[in-house]
């Protein structure tokens, strides 16, 4: 990673969380975007980190419970009479 006039690559990493979550001040976002135009490695890190979050968000959320797990849970909680109305 290269050194830039204003922001170093290290600075980019420090602000990356706020930048990706949309919590960074507009002028600082602009500085990051300026830096990325001249620093391919930082651009790739920002883009692939963003893609990483997106992928987890959209594909890792689908989880199947083992067979009977819901029923066992309701039984353990003495809620057997509520087992039937499955969503």
């Amino acid at each position: 990673m290269s050194k830039h006039d204003q922001l170093t690559c290290h600075d980019i990493l420090g602000s990356l969380g706020d930048y990706l979550d949309g919590n960074l001040r507009a002028d600082l976002c602009e500085e990051i975007e300026n830096h990325m135009r001249g620093c391919e490695n930082c651009r790739v890190v920002v883009d692939t980190t963003s893609k990483t979050i997106y992928l987890y968000h959209h594909t890792a959320r689908e989880v199947e419970l083992p067979n009977g797990a819901r029923e066992r849970l309701f039984s353990a909680l003495k809620l057997d009479d509520f087992i039937l109305p499955k969503r």
Binding site: V63, P66, A69, R70, L73, A76, L77, L79, F82
Partner: peptide, 30 residues
């Protein structure tokens, strides 16, 4: 029961991804 119905999915998911094992995750769920 309404509360359990709404949250058992997300809680199981958290447990499964923390532990990487469905049987342990079910223990955590209960």
């Amino acid at each position: 029961a309404r509360m359990v119905e709404a949250y058992y999915g997300p809680i199981y998911r958290l447990a499964l991804k923390m532990l990487g094992d469905s049987s342990d995750a079910e223990d955590v769920l209960q």
